[in-house]
Design a protein around this nucleic acid. Structure first.
Lengths: 229, 229
DNA sequence: CGCGAGCTTGACGTTGTTCAACTAGAGTGG
DNA sequence: CCACTCTAGTTGAACAACGTCAAGCTCGCG
């Protein structure tokens, strides 16, 4: 089903992985895609299911997380409009290895795997861009390994707050649309521990919390806490 | 410098990522590669340095690890002959983001980045194989996230032992060529904790340790410990 | 025979989780 | 308008998991 209200050729939300596509290729994508809208909390990709489409996120905020043990999740990253989502299932078992879930009301565009692979085969520049995109995720995961396995609670929460401030909300103060449990899933902590560190940051005047708004009063202190772990 | 004793075309150690290369492409690789020998403990790729070559591991055993805080490392995987090593620096910043170090005396073959990228551009099947190879690493990393952040000490050590048994040494008993510190780096534990869990496994008759030989007496128990975390 | 590196063990302290109780705010129905 | 309920958030106390420190051990090697 072709969406009549928008078109890949003049899409302003498209990811940078699409920059090296010709008009013909964008047209091909446009003919083999569909849009969907999601309410906050709804699942976009479910871990374990078949990877039939690739996703270009166009509006809202979503979380990408691995479903682990005992209902505990590891949030690998958050995705914003303009982000392209494939995953390690691509060219391996063609399954999703993480779940993507809308955190805020969101929209996404889905491209059929078949035409994606076709264009990957025919356009080496696009193949390189896709490869680069997945390697950037891996670089992010490496930092996460260090944060989650070698830093203590304050360092991990500082990493998460800096990520939210610098990469996601990009304003200060920002409206925190993640729950405390989700903050815990980002830091591999229990919800209670994450809350306790937030409180400690509040007491130390590093942040101020007003309802669901978080004001980072001392970015330098957060950076230092992140650095020393 | 072309090695005269061997040739990519009839190399029997080559990784599966090279299966879709033509004779001409293998010949090209052969003209832009070199071999090197390493003694146990020597560094093959150093984290932070420029990625000028890609590596095909031909003999021995090596560890791939991220250098984190306070001289603590995270071993992502071990590599055996036939393994191809690129890394997330490919198409991003062209630097190495992990260190590769020989655990046993080893040999490796290095292909120039330039010809590698050229063949990636000209041969889509090879590009797919390279992409697949890197996604397999990512799948491995996802399992490691779960193991390191959600399992307790026995579960993590069980994961490491099963990996050594099933994927690396592939014989039982096996000669453990990793130090206790390296086992700790695989499990994100302190050396002492790793040793304590090994002792516990010994007391429970799950393994038997004779010098540097480890005999897994009860694989089922290890699998169960891995499963429950 | 002595040295040094890796290994082992115990005692102890810290870090982080669990459990339970409580609070605040939003929605719901009488 | 007022209970009632439900969920997310918060806090404290007890506990378990894990790391640190220090000492001693083993074994290969000079």
């Amino acid at each position: 089903m072709v969406n009549t209200t928008c078109n890949c050729l003049d899409c302003i939300k498209k990811s940078t992985v699409f920059t090296n596509l010709s008009k013909e290729e964008l047209k091909l994508f446009n003919e083999h895609r569909y849009d969907a809208r999601y309410y906050a909390g709804e699942i976009i990709f479910k871990q374990g299911t078949a990877m039939t489409h690739l996703m270009s996120f166009t509006s809202g905020l979503a979380k990408v997380y691995i479903e682990g043990f005992n209902n505990r999740n590891i949030i690998l990253k958050l995705i914003k409009p303009g982000e392209f989502v494939g995953g390690p299932g691509l060219y391996t078992d063609f399954k999703h290895h993480f779940t993507v879930r809308a955190v805020e009301d969101s929209k996404a565009c889905f491209i059929e795997m078949g035409v994606f692979k076709k264009v990957m085969n025919e356009n080496p520049d696009f193949a390189v861009d896709a490869h680069k995109n997945s390697n950037l995720d891996t670089l992010n995961n490496f930092q996460k390994f260090i944060s989650l396995t070698q830093k203590q609670m304050p360092g991990r929460v500082a990493d998460a707050l800096l990520y939210l401030l610098n990469d996601i909300y990009q304003e200060n103060p920002f409206k925190m649309t993640l729950t405390r449990q989700e903050l815990a899933d980002m830091t591999a902590l229990s919800k209670e521990s994450a809350i306790r560190i937030l409180k400690q940051f509040k007491d130390d005047k590093i942040i101020r919390v007003n309802g669901d708004s978080i004001d980072v009063l001392n970015v330098a202190a957060l950076n230092e806490i992140s650095r020393i772990g």
